[in-house]
């Protein structure tokens, strides 16, 4: 064995040295590709189960080798719809598991953190409907809203900031949108405004909002009715003038299931659950 080892080390052998006492060694490649007929397969499996190291190691390399045959397949490209479907499923499961972690795990939000929400709601129950003419592009954008998230993100990038602004403007002005005032916990902070359209999404705007701390950003939460845990939503970043306008096209809950909107300060990238007390809260329904 030593001489074999040295020889292999020097690269003179190919890694498939056949031990003359081991007739099983020549079944390994066929076993890895899955083409052994039942009797030979059973014999080899019994031999492997007996703990033959040489065969086991050879099998590992053969499995790797067999996997490379995939490159014989002609190149083909899956549809964008497949990616969209997958991402939609995965996003939904990620949101679901975040919510479950909050319920199940001990790392949920301390109840005291959200106790203040109810009190703040008393000050913020203000909503209004604004009448306005439907824009020509509403139909187009509603159709967009049905396309999977991934496809939408790609299109949006192409459509550019102008289209996003147009979409936000439409939500802002559509008569079906509901206005939600978000009142600050700190009276020195400005009020924020949100507009929620049942089909087109939710826009949140702020002016003269101080920058969050270093490596921090603002994050929106949807607080469900019936004592549910806050659902994470978009992250927000005021510009140099303290202004921001941001849109969620498909809020995870419907308006009627949502009690309130809240905004907290979170680490860059956002959090699956709030890690600080809400800075703004606004009642929805």
């Amino acid at each position: 064995m030593d001489s074999q080892w040295l020889a292999a080390f020097k690269g003179k052998f190919t890694g498939n040295i056949v031990n003359s006492n081991d007739q099983f060694r020549e079944l390994i490649e066929a076993y890895a590709i899955g083409s052994l007929d039942a009797p030979e397969r059973a014999q080899l499996e019994a031999h492997l189960a007996s703990g033959c190291d040489d065969c086991e190691k050879a099998l590992q390399e053969a499995r790797w080798l067999v996997s490379q045959l995939a490159y014989l397949a002609p190149n083909a490209e899956p549809s964008d719809m497949l990616k969209g479907r997958l991402l939609q499923t995965v996003r939904a499961e990620a949101a679901g598991s975040a919510a479950r972690r909050q319920v199940v795990g001990g790392a949920g939000i301390p109840s005291w953190l959200w106790a203040g929400v109810a009190a703040l709601l008393l000050f913020s129950l203000y909503s209004a409907w604004i009448a306005h003419k439907m824009h020509d592009e509403v139909a187009y954008l509603q159709q967009q809203a049905k396309i999977e998230q991934a496809e939408r993100e790609r299109l949006e990038a192409e459509l550019g900031a102008a289209k996003t602004q147009a979409h936000e403007a439409m939500i802002w002005s559509d008569p079906k949108s509901k206005k939600i005032m978000l009142r600050p916990k700190d009276p020195k902070m400005p009020d924020l405004e949100a507009m929620w359209h049942p089909d087109m999404g939710l826009v949140v705007r702020g002016w003269k909002v101080p920058s969050p701390g270093e490596k921090r950003m603002l994050q929106l939460w949807l607080i469900p009715k019936a004592g549910g845990k806050p659902m994470p939503s978009m992250t927000l970043w005021p510009d140099a003038n303290g202004k921001f306008s941001a849109m969620v096209e498909n809020p995870p809950d419907t308006m009627s299931d949502t009690q309130a909107l809240a905004i907290t300060e979170e680490p860059i990238g956002g959090s699956p659950q709030p890690t600080s007390a809400p800075m703004w809260v606004g009642g929805v329904s």
Partner: peptide, 9 residues
């Protein structure tokens, strides 16, 4: 791409 190519083949 490679996964789809393989499965389609």
């Amino acid at each position: 791409r490679i996964v789809y190519s393989l499965v389609l083949r």
